[in-house]
Design a protein around this nucleic acid. Structure first.
Lengths: 134, 134
DNA sequence: CGGTATCCCGGTGGATACTG
DNA sequence: CAGTATCCACCGGGATACCG
């Protein structure tokens, strides 16, 4: 019965969406685990930086993504944006307490990554090697 | 001078790419922080599961993304795939030692998320409120 | 200086159908 | 059951140009 199958899938989707929306970890990952966020947070761990400083610190980020990512982090209360009305304008970004509290986790992740990256690379090489046989 | 500006940007890009490729944390985030990976790893934390079990546990994932994500995790040595040649075929997935070693971090992330999700939500609401004024 | 606005390409990921 | 293949809509994100 096609109709009920479709209905079932639609229902699954609703349940799934509710699940996704409710899952705090997903929310947090969505905020801090995208292409630039973790890098920016880490960059700000050492102290506040101006927009242009961040652009240099996190080399390779485009204007657009820098601003966009900063907005999301500001929106979620991880960083604070301070505008100083001078000529030219000066904008500083710094971690909030919430942002600071994230550092231990990012630190642990960094440590784990540096410790295990070789294993991962080795696993990849091995996997590639097996692929060549097939 | 347009030429040098372009050359500069190209050079920045090379430096950036090298930086990205060399950064272990980025590699790890690319592996575990995508839409489904963290969910799958967490699902396997309680013990091995079959392909179809995972599909049910992580409700909402498509066949394609389930298989694709499992492949990446297998490739990076985070999970192990075991095929039992029977009829029908049986495929089990389980965490490797490397995958297990990831759990404390994922656990910490989960704890942090559950602890601070309210603050994040509050920050968002406040941000939205400010937006309305402007 | 610190942004917006616009264009557009490529990759992500969902839906569907088919295979061993 | 587990996986592959195809098609396609969507949007992430880079390049560029323009504003306050």
């Amino acid at each position: 019965m096609t109709v009920t199958a479709e209905a079932r899938r639609a229902q699954d989707k609703v349940v799934y969406n509710a699940f996704m929306a409710a899952c705090p970890t997903r929310q947090v990952l969505a905020t801090i685990a995208d292409k630039w966020a973790a890098l920016l947070i880490t960059a700000l761990a050492d102290g506040s930086q101006r927009h242009s400083e961040l652009a240099r610190t996190v080399a390779g980020v485009s204007q657009k993504m820098l601003t966009q990512t900063l907005r999301v982090l500001e929106r979620d209360g991880v960083i604070a944006r301070t505008v100083t009305a001078s000529v030219p304008v000066r904008v500083d970004y710094e971690l909030t307490d919430l942002g600071e509290s994230l550092m231990p986790i990012l630190g642990a992740l960094k440590t784990w990554s540096e410790t295990h990256i070789r294993e991962i690379m080795a696993a990849r090489d091995e996997y590639e090697a097996r692929e060549l046989v097939a």
